[in-house]
Nucleic acid binder design. Structure first.
Lengths: 341, 341
DNA sequence: CCGCCCAATGAAAACCTTTACATAAGTCGA
DNA sequence: TCGACTTATGTAAAGGTTTTCATTGGGCGG
């Protein structure tokens, strides 16, 4: 425990102190069974005395592995992000990997900059939270040029990329069926941003449910943008019409919160006058009045699965890719009731 | 653009193609002015042809710098986290650094595990979002043994650690004065978790304001825990008393949301019957009813400052440490009004 | 007692850069 | 024309591991 505030100890220092070669020290650490008991003890003593920690950069260089994973996200502030990240981080940590954050803000240049982490070897693999293939070029290039990647939360179509996300279609169907079971006949789907894959998937589930109705129900979709302001705007536009829905199924909780706010402002009571269902179960869904009935996305689980898939892939580069869709539960709170008369 | 799906190109490949030495290639990249125009062109052509990207691990090893910063957080899900991280990430990226996330969950063992990133050289510096010195030992050890670190969001007392956070005391004072200016005489402070430094700082600001009152006002503090449930519980306890406050100043927005919820459940109107002020201005503060009046923490700015301080420190290891407190604005929404009668 | 095999260890190469130092070819002033 | 500088480039060391291959010595079957 001598305090040498000098340079950190290297494997050579340890070797010298233990009177063995550096190769033996290396082995004593990584494959203890390969070295004699007595030697191992000497080495461990020397390690303790020097306070030696293997230099990760040298290890990385030699092993050609950085043990880092790059997580590319469009927005760190997305309410789903922390939960997913928690899951990602948890298994990465457990398996000796570090998690590197890349916030792209939708900026392609930034995205490209981050991808250089991969070609430079700073990161071994990629978790895509962006919902799209990383920039140009990739799709055309040969399979092998694509770094190991897994898409999480939003599916991505590519032969060489696994994905894990919520089974939006099934979940949306469940949500819609719930409204139908309460007796609602006019249910509107408040969509997400134009062209958003998740919004399309949820729309399908909504349609699935409608198509099973005993008496025909018509598909009714209005635009939103995934924000609460978008939800408000959607409601405003609705009031120009002569007929109103009795229930709203919203692309996400943010939208639902906007919808509820706008309805309340108009003097409608939720759920007495109108029912609203969201999607995500963001932390605040339970904190608004009324408590929001919504679909819970298994965020942390999505993260865990995605990281597991990626790390497995790194260990087994030729393993086949797969798409995994996790079940999303309906969380019933108090934003829905039977339709008024 | 020949597609060699083989190994990535090394500096040697480039050198061979450009018919120069690897040293020249290295210089052509990092100090272009040191190499003749003609050579530079040849090198650049060769780089383009090979698709060369310098191997970061080799660079790191040689330069003894990983260009990574470890961000240690107690909980990724804290509503303040994304904003701070955004700021951190932004300047790190701009200055060529990567951001590594470590989620400790308050687990000391995990924290220690992450700190090994520093001793192993995986990260050059540390951003502390945990509010405390990293685990045991450090405080006693000599200055130089502490890796470059900056505390963000929660101040940390250590000679060798800079910190940047909101000026809680001043902000809390402003919030309290605002309530006083509306005419409130009985203002209660709903505290955060026991022993929380930030809660203490905000309490001080609250006291500062009270002590300036024209007619003496008494300090009234009740316990909370920083969650909305804690806020609810605090209100419940209050109702056992015979006298009630007319306004609540809460440790944070979560608490405030709980307080408002509990008051509403009891049949009180906010702000007509009771006023409530929060702290943080989390994204949902504007989405609840009534819109929450609160102090906005300059989250992103805190992150930017903290990262700047850390990176400056890495470049200038002997620069003095400093504590920086940023101004927090009062955001007036609709959770406050003049006291009844 | 001999040869074979195994276990334990060491020497050295490889991983890929950056950079201090050496060298070669000019430039320029005297 | 020569030496002193300058500029452009090359050589080789250094950075700290891991791992292959070679070496040594001992155990053991024949």
């Amino acid at each position: 425990m001598h305090n040498h505030p000098k340079k950190p100890a290297t494997i050579e220092d340890v070797a010298r102190l233990a009177e063995v070669s550096i190769a033996t020290v290396s082995r004593a650490i990584s494959k203890p069974e390969k070295v004699a008991e007595s030697t191992r003890k000497k080495v461990n003593a020397a390690i303790a005395r020097t306070g030696y920690t293997a230099n990760a950069m040298a290890q990385n260089l030699r092993r050609q592995r950085s043990h880092m994973v790059l997580v590319l996200a469009e927005s760190i502030s997305d309410p789903n992000f922390p939960g997913i990240l928690t899951g990602l981080e948890k298994v990465a940590n457990a398996r000796g990997y570090g998690v590197l954050i890349g916030n792209t803000d939708g900026d392609v240049a930034l995205e490209e900059k981050y991808l250089r982490f991969l070609s430079a070897g700073t990161a071994d693999g990629l978790i895509l939270l962006t919902g799209h293939l990383p920039v140009a070029g990739w799709p055309e290039q040969s399979k092998t040029l694509i770094p190991p990647a897994v898409a999480a939360a939003t599916p991505v179509q590519h032969d060489n990329i696994s994905y894990v996300c919520t089974d939006d279609r099934a979940a949306a169907r469940i949500a819609t069926e719930y409204l139908m079971s309460l007796g609602h006949k006019r249910i509107v789907y408040v969509a997400g941003p134009k062209g958003n894959v998740l919004s399309e998937r949820r729309l399908q589930g909504y349609c699935d449910a409608l198509s099973q109705a005993s008496e025909p129900m018509s598909i009714w979709k209005i635009d939103g943008d995934g924000t609460s302001l978008g939800g408000r705007a959607a409601v405003e536009r609705l009031f120009i019409r002569d007929t109103l829905p009795t229930a709203f199924f919203c692309f996400n909780d943010n939208t639902a919160i906007g919808v509820i706010g706008a309805l309340q402002d108009r003097g409608y009571d939720v759920p007495d006058d109108m029912s609203v269902v969201g999607f995500d179960d963001i932390p605040f869904a339970s904190n608004i009045t009324p408590g929001l009935t919504t679909i819970r996305q298994p965020r942390s689980q999505i993260g865990e699965y995605a990281m597991t898939a990626l790390l497995d892939r790194l260990a087994q580069p030729n393993a086949p890719t797969e798409g995994k869709e996790l079940h999303g539960d309906l969380i019933v709170r108090s934003s829905c009731s039977v339709p008024k008369a």
